[in-house]
Amino acid sequence: MGGLFTLGSSLIAEAEQTHEGLSYLGLWVNVLFVLAILFGLMSYAKKGLNERVFKNPITQGFEQVYLFIENMCVVIIGNHGRKYVPMVMVLWLVIFTGNIVALFLGESPTADLSFNFAMALIAVGYVQYEGVRANGLFGHVKHFAGPKLGGVLVIISGLIFVVELISEVLKNVSLSLRLFGNIHGGHVAVESMNKLGEPILVPYGMFLLPIKLLTCVVQAMIFTLLTCVYISLVTHHEEGHGERHAPAAAH
């Protein structure tokens, strides 16, 4: 049993030899690179904003993204979800740009666990902030304890409270680790497939490009989608909407 796991970890360690995490400065360079691309696109798209019909293709793309995210927010969170659109859209844009950069370069912010963890912390922290703002501090804490139970069942409430706290922490881990695993795993997969095709000089890894492109979009979407679900969970008690998502989110 132990040998099994040492095998697995040694495999990962081998992968890590080629892909140790970015250094502090390297992460800064990557983040600034991504932000430069993002801001360049945005300022280019801003020029086409004043027309009656958006002819600028970049502007059209941003418009589509905006409408998509607005739709997502409204469907998942409800009618008051429109005010979370900017926050969710910034997350989406950063993740998507980072993923696209990761398609072509070996390193990218989203392929770095620390950056993803920062994003997840921000997202979940924002969710907690919204929860406190919507329900009050006490109401928000009470929300962790699950449904109201009387008598001896208070113990169960306490258990639920602990479980919910753990799940709240795990939200961070799950969000960041998912993104990291997908993007970084894509890199590793490409590397190993390239190694596979080395003897006959065929870069097999390049054939993974389409599925990696799909992963880019899907991962950006899942990150923002889960953020929306978390927001809807903490801000949506009165309309009975959150209960339906509860089993899905209470992992």
Partner: peptide
């Protein structure tokens, strides 16, 4: 195998 750096975060 988890390249995590709290400072970067």
């Amino acid at each position: 195998g988890i390249p995590f750096d709290p400072g970067k975060t």
